[in-house]
Write a protein that binds this DNA or RNA. Sequence first.
RNA 1: GUGGAUGUAGCUCAGUGGUAGAGCCCCGGAUUGUGGCUCCGGUGGUCGUGGGUUCGAUCCCCAUCAUCCACCCCA
Length: 431
Amino acid sequence: MSKSGAKKIQAIRGMNDLLPSDSPRWQFFEAKVRTLMQRYGFDEIRMPIVEQTALFARSIGEVTDIVEKEMYTFEDRNGDSLTLRPEGTASCLRAAMEHGLLYNQTQRLWYQGPMFRHERPQKGRYRQFHQVGVEAYGFDGPDIDAEVILLSARLWQELGLSEHVTLELNSLGSLEARAAYRETLVAYFNEHRALLDEDSLRRLESNPLRILDSKNPDMAAMLDAAPQLLEHLDDESREHFEALKRMLEAAGVQYVINPRLVRGLDYYSRTVFEWTTTALGSQGTVCAGGRYDGLVEQLGGKPTPAVGFAMGIERLILLLDTLALVPSEALGGSDVYLLALDDSATTEALTLAERLRSELPELALTLHCGGGSFKSRMKKADKSSARIALLLGEDEVASGSVTVKFLRDDREQRQINQRELATILPELLTR
RNA sequence: GUGGAUGUAGCUCAGUGGUAGAGCCCCGGAUUGUGGCUCCGGUGGUCGUGGGUUCGAUCCCCAUCAUCCACCCCA
């Protein structure tokens, strides 16, 4: 509260602080992801948050909502148009191409970090949000499609989410087949123009496939009778899709074919998929991706097949939270709280803490700082997650010992020689 | 960009046209070196911001900002 009356500065709308009480679940999630990627042979890549605006315009599609109205775009001091990345696929591909990672070789990459889209925030949707992305380059068969889907399925399993998410699957066909289907569809919609709502009329120009996704009940019958994407696939895409389905079945992964699953970004072709949940309100997609075989060429590289997906970390954490799936032992905190009984032993407490940290590198020890009454020091020990409090008073200093008090178990406290602490403390903590 | 709801203590929320309260939290004490339970006391708010009506507004009116939810779109 300032007396000056100056306006409070707050965080930008839709950009959230991650508070100390939140970060343990993020770390829990991130640790799961990191080891999983390693187990599947995917290597981490890190890209800048800012790119040339043209990268996104050329990859995501000029007429998509993201590019048209959701990007944080600004001019650099030298007049270049720069953009805060709205997604990771384009950046990842740019980096891989720029450093020759696609030259005569395949790549399996993953990344994690903030993305930016200027949308109205709501539950599970923020202007700065975080994604984990997975991209595989140079594989054209359905095995890699299955592999990345299985990777995601295993993550749900490890997080305890399997029962709460559904895999939706579709194929968009080759870019040529998709373009042909698009014309058929536009012709159909034009025949039934009178039934289209305002949004759909707009999409008829921009992205007619998305009309299939409409939730408007008045259009349901007309949409049901519309030409089906899956019936207009080219033979190669059809075989690819059938093979993928067989592989998923062999691996025991359940899926639902959703012929209206289209994905919003222009670069997708063939396989597209989404993992959805009903537990998060209207932002039900927690992970989505697919194939984008044409994108490398579109960005000026040699034709290179590619497949990938991105998951929304906020949404997944929200889901873990609502389902109470973050184990309490993952919540971190200290093992031991070391306190001087009064100010006379402050220095001894400090040096003892340092000695223990040298002798027991695995130990999480919080040293009481800031004085206060003995009672308040004990209260802080209690508030901490520590199972053991180490007390250091005049008597202990005089005898070179420390009092060990158990804060969570019904055990007698005891006095231990400071020199024996490093060997005894780990035992006391495991029992 | 559109619609709806909500802004009172650090948090969760009551409340009234006569300048505010509870619970939790925090601090101190009951208990000179022993936390959690209990009891007592205390700190903390220009009632989102700006304007209007009024003798007087936290309350009524207008505007604005923010948050949440939904639409759109997306992870």
